[in-house]
């Protein structure tokens, strides 16, 4: 899968989680999702499960934290690490 396609998937998953919380938030690659209070710990777990299924990858729990997953850019970095 191309990088841009992965990025679009990440954006779509985050957007779905925000929509479910009735948040019509516009977010960018560097918008703080967790430290900014947009998403909670349950959303983090769901986001990992969604990404694993949609991208057919496995994220090691050791690579996932509210720090590494705080922004779309961070999530992209974690996905790259999981693939390497």
């Amino acid at each position: 899968m191309e990088i841009e396609e992965i990025r679009q998937t990440v954006f779509a998953c985050v957007d779905q989680l925000l929509q479910e919380q009735d948040l019509d938030e516009v977010f960018q690659d560097d918008t703080p999702l967790f430290s900014g209070g947009l998403l909670d710990s349950m959303a983090l777990i769901r986001l990992v499960a969604m990404l694993e299924r949609q991208l057919d990858i496995t994220m090691s729990p050791g690579q996932v934290s509210v720090d590494t997953f705080d922004t779309v850019a961070g999530i992209m970095g974690a996905i790259r690490s999981s693939a390497s």
Binding site: P61, V64, S65, V66, T68
Partner: peptide, 13 residues
């Protein structure tokens, strides 16, 4: 154990 700050997802696992 594991990375600092990754305890939440490890707990889930």
């Amino acid at each position: 154990l594991g990375n600092e700050g990754a305890g939440g997802m490890m707990f889930q696992s």
